[in-house]
Structures are given as C-alpha cells and as structure tokens.
Design a protein around this nucleic acid. Structure first.
Lengths: 112, 112
DNA sequence: ATTGATACATAGCGTTACTAGGCATAGCAT
DNA sequence: ATGCTATGCCTAGTAACGCTATGTATCAAT
C-alpha cells in the first residue's frame, strides 16, 4: 500500500528525464529494488491526473520499434510538488522513527 | 495518510507497556513529535480489530480518578506482527530511498 | 451551569490504489 | 500461419481503510 505516496513515487521516477508510462513502471520497479511493481491500472490514471494537475506534460512519439508512446516529462510545478512531497515524506518517516523506540533513532540519511 | 501503517503505529505505541485508548492517542502524538494526531474514530476501531486478530488483549480497569478505562497490552502474536510489520516498513522506506536519486545512493547504513 | 478534557463506541463517508477488462502492435517460436 | 509473450495504452468499477460525525458519560474548572 502506497496510499498518499504514489504521486511522489511517479514524479521521482521522472527526475532522470522524460519517460513513457510503461517505461516508468519498469523504472520504478528497478529503482525500488523490485519492491514497487505497479500495475498499469495504477500508473496510467495517475499520469493523467498528474498532467491534469499541471505536474506533467506529455506528447506522443514513435519509438524506433515503430510503437507509439506517450512520453511524460515534469514541469516546473511538478518539480515543486515533488520537493514538497519529499519534505512531507521526510517528516512522515521521522515520525515513524520516533515511534520505534526513543533510543534507537534512525541515523540521518545522507541527502543530495 | 497512514494507509497500511496504522496497525504498526498502534502496536509500536504499546511497546513501552500497556495503555488505554485515549492514552495511546496521546502517546502516539508525543512520540511522533506531533505528526500523528489520530482521532478517536481511527484508534478505537483499530484497537478492536487488533484485539480480534489476537495481537492485543484488553481488560477494564478503574483509574484513581474513578474513570473506567479499557487497557490494552500486546500479546506474543502482536509482538511478532509488529516485528514483521517493522521489517516491511524498512523495505518500504528503503524502496522510497532508492527512488530518490540513484547517484546519491543511500550509503550502507552506518551499522546498527 | 457551562465548558473543556477525559474516555469509549460506531455508522457511514470519501479517498485512492487496484482489479479486471479491453484494444493493438512487434518479435519469437512452433 | 499461429500462437504466445512482451510491449504499450486506456477505463469502469471495486475494495480497502482511515476519517468524519455523532452519541454517551464522568470529572474538573469557571
């Protein structure tokens, strides 16, 4: 269950550059070490929603293989949204860490 | 949004010892640094569910104040469930970490 | 007496990821 | 030729699940 974090996950997958839906699924799976293997029924509606919100922009392309693909890339608004969502995640993760014993606090993660 | 993590959160709040519903709410709020301020409509049904699942055991008590309280404590099963859920959380958090930039890969955790 | 904190409980709601289904093309093997 | 698999996109409906709203009750303070 990724409730509430899906947008962030999809946006994060596009940080490296534009990609198409099917490729995003694979990229998320790869970067997450196989933990997140999202079904198409999750990704496509999400991409549409994010584009409608102005976080993504898309255009149709034709791959060398001849297949049609819809390629998405992040907008400035999307980058800001990701940044915000990321901060939110940080607070969330810290809060969970706080619940897991006051003593064994999670070590500070090396940020960018 | 705590979707999927609520059970773990409630169980974690009971690690320090038994507590009653209302107190658990405050304990979670305290330990999370105020991030998780769960409404009663979230906690009580959850406690009932966890007890039904055998993760918690409860009994009625009367506080010095004269108030009736239902005190919950974790069972052996609950401890195991928490442990499992915690491992799940670790994988989840690591996966999110993996999505946040490959370059800045999380360094091997500075040991436990 | 009225407000606020404490304390428990539940029915119904709304958000949101997911299931299940559909359509279509390319490449490979039988 | 004919499946079969992977690629590639899409949507309607479902279901899980935390939360809102509401009710009840006791105690302390104003």
């Amino acid at each position: 269950m990724l409730k509430g974090h899906l947008d962030m996950i999809v946006l994060a997958a596009l940080v490296g550059g534009p990609a198409h839906g099917y490729g995003i699924i694979q990229e998320i799976k790869r970067r997450s070490g196989g933990a997140f293997d999202l079904p198409e029924g999750t990704i496509y509606p999400t991409l549409h929603r994010l584009e409608k919100a102005g976080y993504l922009a898309s255009h149709w392309t034709t791959a060398e293989s001849g297949r049609k693909r819809r390629v998405y890339k992040m907008t400035r608004r999307g980058e800001r949204a990701l940044s915000d969502h990321r901060a939110l995640w940080q607070r969330f993760a810290d809060a969970i860490g706080g619940l897991f014993g006051e003593k064994a606090r999670a070590p500070a993660r090396s940020h960018s």
